[in-house]
Nucleic acid binder design. Structure first.
Lengths: 233, 233
DNA sequence: CTTGTTTTTTGGTCTATACCGATATATAAT
DNA sequence: ATTATATATCGGTATAGACCAAAAAACAAG
């Protein structure tokens, strides 16, 4: 039960937000102020904030402050591996919670996979998908920013594929997928309500447009106990 | 080039790995050592390592060190490929060790999957498959006994598909596959030279003949660290 | 009031140090 | 030789300070 301090602070701040201490879009106290309130160093406080930012509960703005992120609910229908279809086939109600949604610089692997040029930015989204309110997977999706710069957030989170097709004329082609097994990390295990070291089924998916341009890179971690892939060939 | 230092170090380490400075599975120098080599604090060095871990290029093990993540053997599921062909395509030497091979009464799930009649017997085989002498998976295959009663043991174990096609005129049709993640049991972990509780990628495959008759039920447990599926859609 | 400049606040990065628990290795005991 | 124990190594967490650049706020000039 001896969670690290930054996890404890993470939980306290999260509860405070859920209790309405700060409303959506509102600024929370500065890191230096919170660190004295919680009697920890700023770096430790930052670690707590970072996890909340990763979860999409908070958003940072340099020089301005840290804000309570706007809430979101969406369902993505991926024509390639449709979580929704899989869940409905089993009589489950699919839902999801977006944890983070922000533009940032791509990592090297993202540059490589998405064939980005120097200076290109990406939109990175993290979310948790549920079946009947039970967490099934933790998913990180990366899209080149230039592709979605004209779209609203809900257009991206709720039906990216439809939006891309209708507004950008992008026709979805093939997808490369790799499936592997791993053990749950501390962070992901808390998202998915499992134990650290539990079995995780990992899916990496790189989707291409019909012209061969990669446009979406998704990394998903499924709870081994709660999910299986069904493949036909 | 005004990138933060930890990004620069990230790039240097990544290039060094790609250049072969450390091989796959090898331990890279400790954080404290690298931090002095790069003349930065350990925290900064940790930030660089963290990004590489996030990208799946490195793996951390507390008390042990940081390792170059193993590049995994990939299976292409786009066609019905045998393990042998698969390994050869990747320049690995495939081999296998049969653990058991005998006829017996089917289990309930085997009766169901293979649509067996009362009194039907099955041939059950257990084996370990290797790539370059490294154990990759533990596999249990079940085949209706009547299908293979005319074949020799080597005909079944070495190239079942080929034998079935040539000698029984059975044309292979589709296959249903279920992929999931689990943890290694004590018994399987010894076969595969891993630890109990390590990640296992489990594949259940039910193969059908072109006329729709199921003829093979295979349950495979792949070592998560050494194997991944590659799906092309 | 509007516009341009300076100051302050804020998150982002970085240092140097410290202690903990998990792991590996060397050592001692049997 | 085998087994138990101590020691060293390693990543994980935490502290207290520091400087930077972006943004906001305060201020000055028109």
């Amino acid at each position: 039960m001896n969670s690290p301090v930054y996890i404890q602070i993470h939980n306290e701040i999260k509860k405070a937000i859920e209790a309405g201490k700060w409303k959506v879009g509102e600024r929370i106290p500065a890191e230096r102020e919170l660190s004295t309130q919680f009697s920890v160093s700023r770096m430790t406080l930052r670690q707590a904030i970072s996890t909340l930012v990763d979860e999409g509960i908070l958003e940072r703005k340099v020089g301005s402050g840290t804000y309570v992120a706007s809430q979101k609910v969406q369902e993505k229908v991926s024509g390639v591996t449709s979580f929704t279809e899989l869940m409905e086939a089993q009589g489950k109600k699919p839902s999801s919670r977006t944890i983070s949604y922000h533009t940032s610089e791509p990592s090297l692997s993202e540059i490589e996979k998405l064939q980005l040029n120097d200076g290109d930015l990406v939109l990175r989204m993290e979310r948790i998908r549920f079946a009947d309110s039970v967490p099934i997977c933790y998913e990180t999706a990366t899209i080149p920013e230039k592709l979605v710069s004209d779209f609203s957030k809900s257009e991206v989170t709720k039906s990216l594929y439809k939006t891309l097709e209708e507004k950008a004329g992008l026709v979805i082609g093939r997808a490369d997928q790799t499936v592997s097994a791993m053990l749950a990390s501390e962070r992901v295990s808390e998202y998915l309500d499992i134990k650290r070291g539990d079995a995780i089924l990992r899916l990496h998916q790189l989707s291409y447009a019909q012209d061969g341009t990669p446009f979406e890179y998704v990394r998903t971690q499924y709870v081994g106990e709660r999910f299986e892939f069904y493949l036909n060939r």
